[in-house]
Design a protein around this nucleic acid. Structure first.
Lengths: 250, 250
DNA sequence: CAGTGGTCTAGACCACATT
DNA sequence: ATGTGGTCTAGACCACTGT
């Protein structure tokens, strides 16, 4: 009947979920690249052999997950980690007056190593697998506020070097995309209060023992694949961590 | 044409948004109460004079916002703050091994007062307006973990008394619903790290100066109306604050 | 202007839950 | 068996964007 579909909608299946996965597949293989427009809804509907309503439902979900971005009258685009408002989807530190601000970033450490047990579990790799460690210091309004201690699997990022990190002019998630085709689309964070140890206190220009937020983040790409483990130490004297729950209404 | 609709879909309008607001209106006036089922999609479509697809789009959004809860084959229900999984939509403290657990609650303070400037701004009331203050201590696994210092406008809760708080067998948001018809549907939280002062340290059984999370929450009802200001002090020795970002996929 | 995404319709059939 | 929400269709018209 339809040239592209072998299975009828059959029981238990969800046609739009299949369409969604075929779109994700095309993103993963690089057929459509970050920042580019994907084909129109009409063409995609024909290509996948589904009605436009079904195609839209698949795109609706991907759009809600910030994988695709729709612009009325222009087209549907693959999300990219540029300095759009999308940046703040993964950066939740705001000034105490509520204003959002872009941080300036400084690489303060870079090392290669092997995954210990906790790291391996978080990144879904083997104990002893090669990893990259690096630390960024982020400043807001000229004050050092955040220490990001980041661990990624070396196998995922063959071209990620100290030099690439130091010379980049983009966010690290943008760099992951350009260097390795890795798109971060989801994160999970756990937050604790802790005291600054001497080394971190020095980097953040606070006294040892000063209270800090510790955020432990696991970032994931398509298919829930973990791609980054991050420990962020945040000084909340002038800034705070913002969480807005349930708020899509116009 | 349609008995219930005077306006055609006209330009600039969004029929499903109007439907959504009419549903919210029926919730606000109490026509449908928390826990009850609302009429079927077919009946609501007829009542509002729209197709079932349009009615569904309105319900889709309300369901995504946790205002309505759909159960296939049973019906669509008004969200209530019972001890369902919904409880955890507004309770994000988890054990460090990731497991979620219900807290036991103990009222440790209750007072009547007047709003200072910061409180008035947060609750969108006048400076000096009457407010209720109360403090709950929450325990998990037998350990005191959280101190909730809560402020609400007295005008909204004429029947909220110390006795009601002490004798309740439900969550406070459930109590707000039963006592005053106030439904919390959205919150915004800001998180900082701080040190325990002597009074709070004693209540949480930690040393003075111990690092604590401080969460400042504003809870809102329909139409963005603020109904509660809450300062939560959390000991993160055994528990932590969990944030999952962008994760609707099945 | 033509092309895009956004909304809306009026049905159909399916899977699930209750009676 | 009946009624519910969930999926899907095959169109239509609208609003917005760029040429």
């Amino acid at each position: 009947m339809n040239p592209q579909r072998s299975e009828p909608p059959g029981p238990g299946n969800h046609l739009y979920k299949e369409v969604k996965h075929r779109i994700l597949e095309s993103l993963r293989t690089g057929e459509w690249k970050p920042g580019e427009a994907i084909p129109s809804e009409k063409k995609l509907g024909e290509r996948f052999g589904v009605s436009i309503g079904t195609l839209r439902k698949a795109v609706d979900e991907l759009s809600a997950e910030n994988v695709l971005i729709r612009h009325q009258g222009r087209g549907t685009f693959v999300a990219s980690h540029g300095r759009g408002r999308y940046f703040f989807s993964f950066f939740h530190i705001v000034r105490q007056d509520g204003l959002r601000e872009y941080p300036s970033v400084e690489l303060v450490d870079f090392a290669r190593g092997q995954a210990d047990q906790a790291t391996a579990a978080a990144l879904d790799i083997g104990v002893g697998d090669k990893v990259l460690h690096y630390t960024n210091r982020l400043s807001l309004q000229g004050h050092a506020v955040i220490l990001d201690e980041i661990t990624v699997p070396a196998a995922l990022f063959p071209r990620l070097s100290e030099r690439a990190l130091r010379e980049r002019r983009s966010t690290v998630y943008q760099l992951y995309q350009e260097l390795a085709g890795v798109s971060v689309i989801r994160t999970r964070e756990r937050v604790r209060a802790t005291k600054a140890d001497p080394a971190r206190a020095r980097l953040l220009h606070v006294a040892a023992g000063h209270p800090l937020l510790l955020l432990v983040r696991i970032a994931r790409s398509f298919k829930e694949r973990p791609v980054e483990l991050r420990h962020s130490y945040v000084c909340t004297d002038r800034h705070e961590y913002a969480v807005d729950l349930l708020g899509d209404e116009a």
